[in-house]
Design a protein around this nucleic acid. Structure first.
Lengths: 197, 197
DNA sequence: GCCCTTGTTGACCGTCTGGTCAAGAGCGGC
DNA sequence: GCCGCTCTTGACCAGACGGTCAACAAGGGC
């Protein structure tokens, strides 16, 4: 029951936080949902912030799983990007059904909420964003090498734009409570790559 | 001293909230910064949420001022959009100097924070986003009429993409604490319009 | 069978929070 | 000079919150 408890806490916390925010979800709420007492949570985590870091890591693990799934096979680079956008939008739609509201980007939400306070969280988020962008950088570079995108495309620059675009669309999806908005990011990403919609 | 107090409270609250979030800023903090006692604040606002609505409106007023300034004159539509992006990025940079940290989009932040809870705030945010997008829709339509952008450009669709892009870049700027990222949105917006960077 | 480590319990605490309220200023109209 | 309205004061409250703690399982190693 040891590691199982810890993982259950993080998983439950991740879901609750993704549906709302770190501040809106209380420690007791998380404990109740995980079927655990508060002291038990504090046995594994020294503070709520530390749990927040674990939640962030869990979100990154989830995102990385989506990325690996989309970028794994040997399909053309632009198809990989499209597949990821679809997976990303699919995740939002799934969460919407599970929780009754469109949640927004799990990483972007935390970034927006927490990056005003300093601390470990912020530097960690920056590193995560960098790692996330790297997937796009490599795909775009490869696409340029194949002539799928114009030779003037700056992979590093475009990667940041794609990332921002995804997060922005997720924020809009959350505000409008319309998860399909995230799916429309596909067209935006193509435009950012200099391709016709 | 009547209306002056109310306005001072809202202005101070807007600044503090823009620098952090609604949840992170306490009512007492706002009162102290405004030089006002709590009872006085609650004389004007029935609840913190109501103050939050006023803050949202103040943010929209600020954004609308930026929009009017950029979209006012008789310059070509694409120049108007560029000017707005510059003004938007300039605002972030200015706030960064005033508060020591890059704040993110004042509207997008609130949207991300509050839209999980329902209530008046959410519907109001949606209306604001719509009104904001309308500026872009009209400019893009005009640009298409003049042949500045391709005839296949869907103004409504592109407007949403532009909006999302701005918010996403602002979120990234906040996370990285690098306000100049918002300025780079200019290139992204051009790409979204199907133009060379 | 004992011990020691890891995990669990549930009562407890201080603090901060949003919010209230009765009493009092200040001030314009009459 | 009095009234009545708007605004201000500052003490106050109940509840929620993050966090603590001493005591108590559980179970594997020796």
């Amino acid at each position: 029951m040891a590691r199982d408890t810890r993982e259950r806490i993080v998983r439950v916390a991740r879901d609750l936080v993704h549906g709302a925010s770190m501040a809106q979800v209380s420690v007791e709420e998380i404990c109740a949902a995980a079927g655990v007492h508060k002291g038990s949570l504090y046995h594994f985590f020294p503070s709520k912030d530390a749990l927040g870091v674990a939640v962030l890591d869990a979100n990154w693990a989830l995102m990385r799983a989506l990325l690996e799934e989309a970028f794994g096979d040997d399909v053309p680079p632009l198809v990989r990007i499209d597949r990821f956008v679809d997976g990303y939008a699919g995740m939002l739609a799934l969460m919407r059904e599970r929780m009754g509201a469109t949640p927004g980007c799990p990483l972007g939400n935390l970034a927006a909420e927490v990056s005003s306070r300093d601390g470990e969280m912020r530097t960690r988020i920056v590193r995560i964003m960098d790692a996330w962008a790297r997937y796009f950088v490599e795909a775009v570079r490869e696409a340029r090498g194949r002539g799928d995108v114009g030779p003037a495309v700056d992979a590093d620059e475009v990667a940041v734009h794609i990332l921002a675009h995804l997060q922005g669309m997720a924020t809009m999806a959350r505000a409008y409570d319309r998860p399909e908005l995230a799916g429309r990011a596909r067209g935006g990403v193509r435009m950012l790559l200099g391709l016709p919609a």
